[in-house]
Amino acid sequence: MSINESASDDAKDPIVIAKNLTIGYEEPLASNLNLVVKSGEIISIVGPSGVGKTTFLRTIAGMVSPLSGTIECNVKRRGGLGYIPQRLGLVRHTSVYHNVDLGARVGVSFGEFGLSWWSERNKRVLSCVEAMGISEKIREPVRRLSGGQQRRVATARTLAQRPKLILADEFLSELDDDNISAVLDAVKAYIESSGAAMILVEHDINRAKQVSDRMLVIDDGRLNPFIEKLTIQEVKF
């Protein structure tokens, strides 16, 4: 992957461009993936378990190299990319505050805010924790929170970055319907106001249709072939 250091904030530039991508570890999992993600879009990746959805996200994030093809991600290296892994990637023994501050730390730079960067960082942590409705847990160690609450912490951490692109794996699992709309509204509001984009993995097709603008189906033949107007493509191999 090439992270474009001279990333411009021009909203018309695509944030992600994947061309003829083949993903996998030693063996290819899915090939011929083409995807262009523009500012303000929410894209969901759908497919059966084990097909390579997580692998695709990790490839976009630069944690796995593509077996062939190119992927371009026009975001800042520090703070530009938010990632909520399937297992959340939280530091379990430290407080909610500390975890969200990891995001604020990469999102608030000294260069941008000067001497007030410290208080800006603190403000950002508090506002993101507030937005996720976990303010009363802010001093609790993360391991004591419920699954859904932990997911909100991970979301707050990502929002505190003010990232250009959010990658979220199985984003809505473990949240009940009320929680889903609360969390999703906050994320959507952020995406609309900032011109960021989001790619989320969702195993439930109906929910994917509800929450996203477009859908990318990765299928190894197990899924019934169906193409909705939402579906941009279906990849078979």
């Binding site: 994030a61 990319l81 938010g82 990632y83 297992r87 939280l90 970055q161």
Partner: peptide, 14 residues
């Protein structure tokens, strides 16, 4: 240590 916090931190750009 578990890999997922590490990976999330790397992707974030820490």
């Amino acid at each position: 240590v578990r890999n997922d916090p590490l990976e999330a931190a790397r992707v974030m750009g820490l």
